[in-house]
């Protein structure tokens, strides 16, 4: 069983929901990332989404754009991200790591080479924002044959056909984008998300993680009441940005925020 499937099975067994933090690999510096990942695990997260820095993050808001820019300024890249994930794996064999990013770095490496490298780094899943299933068959097949899940997005305007397509193409979990917009934007509407999740669940048995618009313990709790997992990204990266001169402080604030989310979600 894949690490992602095992994680969701265990969560179901214990009646809990997945807390899924997103940070960009190499932000603000390369040596920040791996200790941060371990600290997040201690704070009670279940899956880590590791952002691959990209020069043109078209679906991201300003906070994650700047995270990419900082990581790239410190020679961040897909290769470097894989190396960081491999380093994390040396001392953690249980927490799934999902790479999240854009297609061009993967194109540059080549699909097969990427799948091999991801396997060597013991990556569990890959979410490529600008690779919808109809364009992604080749890449998905390479990953699947190496036991790596491909996570696809669903949006508020995804229709029934689209949800069916994702159910067939995706594995591990589906990532529901709770609002029309970029990462870090606006506030999610609970009723809308609830209604859409009902439709999604009537079509797919895959776990559904919900992201975009999760800012604090309160929204995390609300979202946990609807989906199988809660993704939080911009709110964490804001802590890095507010403490660029003091990365240890950033770590403490991220841990504190995640702990409060964990507590709220479990209570």
């Amino acid at each position: 069983m894949s690490r992602l499937a095992a994680t969701f099975e265990e969560l179901t067994r214990t009646g809990r929901k997945a807390l899924v933090p997103f940070i960009t690999a190499g932000d603000p510096t390369q040596d920040f990332t791996v200790p941060m990942m371990h600290d997040m695990v201690k704070a009670g997260v279940d899956i880590i989404e590791l952002g691959v820095p990209f020069s043109d993050p078209m679906a991201d808001g300003p906070v994650i754009q700047r995270a990419s820019e900082r990581a790239l300024a410190h020679k961040g890249s897909l290769r470097k991200t894989l190396a960081l994930a491999a380093e994390f794996r040396k001392t953690n064999q249980t927490t799934p790591v999902v790479l999240m990013g854009y297609l061009n770095p993967i194109e540059a490496m080549g699909y097969e080479d990427f799948a091999n490298a991801a396997q060597r780094a013991d990556i569990d899943g890959v979410l490529t924002v600008d690779l919808p299933p109809e364009e992604g068959q080749e890449c998905t097949a390479f990953l699947k044959s190496r036991g790596i899940d491909t996570i696809f997005l669903l949006a508020p305007n995804s229709n029934e056909d689209r949800i069916k397509q994702m159910d067939l193409a995706g594995s591990g979990y589906l990532y529901y984008v709770s609002l029309k917009g970029v990462t870090g934007a606006g506030h999610l509407n609970t009723d809308d998300v609830q209604n859409k999740l009902q439709q999604i669940r009537s079509i797919t048995g895959l776990p559904v993680a919900i992201g975009f618009g999760v800012k604090n313990a309160e929204t995390a709790k609300t979202v946990a009441g609807i989906g199988d997992g809660v993704v939080v990204g911009s709110a964490l990266i804001s802590k890095i940005e507010e403490n660029l001169d003091n990365p240890e402080q950033a770590k403490r604030e991220i841990v504190a925020l995640l702990s409060s989310m964990r507590q709220a979600m479990d209570s």
Partner: peptide, 12 residues
């Protein structure tokens, strides 16, 4: 060519 966009842009 093709259609390499995030899911929210597929419907439009």
């Amino acid at each position: 060519g093709g259609m390499f966009v995030a899911e929210t842009l597929i419907p439009p």
